[in-house]
Design a binder for these strands. Structure first.
Lengths: 328, 328
DNA sequence: TTGTAAGCGTTATCAT
DNA sequence: ATGATAACGCTTACAA
């Protein structure tokens, strides 16, 4: 196998022209059922495979679908993203190549690389997680180059084709629940980019934002640990906590338990996202479900709709629910 | 932006030939520092980007690095794979496109799609998780097409460039530990493709394989649940369990606790893989660490070595350790 | 229905 | 160091 067989020599071997071979593969051009069958069989038998790059270059389209997401955790799996990917994957037609590319806010090269993928024609459609500067840059690039795209989350760039989730409302549910179950001293452990959660939490609890104890965290178990220690040592009165995501909640619960705090008796905790582990944790974690997979599914469908020409300019908001389990 | 600018019109605008422009980008050809700088600046300013497909076609190389893995969980994140991906990603040079593609053993189309990616030249190097028929097919394809590749796991195809992990030894450690801590009635909850684990477990415990109660499971929390119920109802004497992966262990512990079994007092449980959640679970899960990230790192390095021409034909075995935490 | 020939946008070869 | 020009392997009018 010194060199790949090209269409010409293959066509010759079969006894047809290159054009006919091309037609046999592309569903388009008119060709007799019989010749097509003959060519396909011969290709199978002789091991002919059209070159991906040549095919794309010749047809001046093609290219894969990319999922761009901000790399928040550099050193840990991103469970949030994973759930969304599952949803997207289950929707997209499997004959399309699907790539997932992180863009790091702090790494110029990564974001440049993501942009380049669109600019050089390798990516012909995109799903983009919004909320960062990098994302904004990619969205406006997608608009400029006129490729089909859908944004997950809010977009300031008056993007069409948006699948959004309502963090603030979800947090309101959490706040309300804590108030109704007679908790008195709320705390909020923040992650990245989620001011709306705090706002909703305060509203639901019926207080102003400034009355909520906020502990700044970030993505990762360890921030939950730190928050638990902070509360144990300096904010004993705290009796309920909303965590910006389930991973933080797990870290919090774990450390709190080690310190002798009882969950949910002493402190009720609610997480965010409802990743797979949440309901399998001990205690099972109460959480605001963003229905991440549905989010992925919607995004995928919205993209397919654009491919199909039905370029309906719509924005969708996936509902979110409070799921009460054992940690509250 | 009706159409992308091509190299010819760009070259004209800058006042050089297309060939010179090409040289300015490719690090190769000899070109004066000055012209290169001028061209690069102009490209930046005019927004010229070479077409990915044309570039690859012209240079008769290119293509991305693919990570092929068997899709075991169709409906859940695969934590095992995620950890490996993190390792690979941290190693690979970021200017190479890295795609991750599942091939499903039960879905002809998915595996055909994976093969096609290699055959049509889109993928020019691969990292393949071994252990399934699909994997074997991909490995032999990689060999036939002579692309650089590395296999993670054991390969029957006398593959070179293998990064292996020693499941059997890890399980031996687990068996031995249970014996030394005076457990008497071992059970093994299997996942996929891991007969060696059972063998090692029996050896470590000092009994024959047939003396180990085996409960057939699979990937996913629910198999852990089912196993716990099975043991609770039909195998009361069981006092220690090795689970084929951490997810199963979590499911097992969760359900066992619900049934009133105390972990580790009544039953000691050891998981496999040491995924991120293992040490953050309550109780923290004792597990056989496969050092998944190191595995990914090694695989990435081995591939880079092949690119660099140092095609050292070597096989590596990443050590594995038993990590004792709270579930034993 | 099939063949001929002109692109597609690069890189590589060979001059200069 | 730079410019012409021929590949690269396919698709797609345009003819037949």
């Amino acid at each position: 196998m010194s060199r790949r067989m090209d269409i010409k020599t293959f066509a010759e071997a079969v006894g047809v022209s290159a054009a006919t071979v091309s037609r046999a593969f592309g569903g388009a051009g008119r060709i007799s059922v019989e010749t097509r069958k003959r060519i396909l069989a011969a290709a199978e038998q002789m091991g002919y495979h059209a070159s991906f790059h040549a095919r794309n270059l010749g047809s001046r389209r093609g290219g894969s679908i990319a999922f761009f997401y901000p790399e928040l955790y550099t050193d840990e799996p991103d469970y949030f993203i994973n759930e969304i990917v599952i949803g997207i994957n289950s929707t997209l037609k499997h004959d399309r190549l699907f790539t997932v590319t992180p863009f790091d806010e702090d790494d110029e090269r990564l974001i440049a690389n993501a942009r380049e993928q669109i600019l050089d024609g390798r990516v012909s459609a995109a799903i983009i997680i919004s909320g960062t500067v990098g994302a904004a840059s990619l969205i406006s690039l997608a608009q400029k180059t006129r490729i089909p795209y859908v944004v997950i989350g809010k977009s300031t760039l008056n993007a069409t084709n948006t699948v959004d989730y309502d963090n603030e409302y979800g947090a309101t549910l959490a706040g309300r629940y804590f108030r109704e179950t007679n908790r008195k001293h709320p705390a909020y452990i923040s992650g990245h980019l989620d001011r709306p959660k705090k706002r909703g939490f305060a509203a639901g609890f019926g207080v102003s934002e400034s009355e909520i104890l906020e502990i700044r965290g970030g993505a990762g178990f360890k921030y939950g640990y730190q928050a638990a220690e902070m509360i144990y040592h300096h904010h004993k009165e705290t009796d309920c906590v909303l965590c910006a995501n389930d991973i933080i909640a797990i870290g919090f619960i774990k450390r709190a338990a080690e310190l002798g705090l009882k969950i949910p008796e002493n402190i009720g905790v609610i997480g965010f996202d409802d990743i797979a582990i949440a309901k399998n944790y001990m205690p099972a974690i109460s959480t605001v479900s963003l229905h991440l997979r549905d989010l992925g599914v919607s995004a995928g469908e919205m993209l397919e709709a654009q491919f199909a020409g039905r370029n309906i300019i719509q924005n969708e908001v996936v509902r979110c629910d409070l799921i009460i389990r054992e940690s509250t």
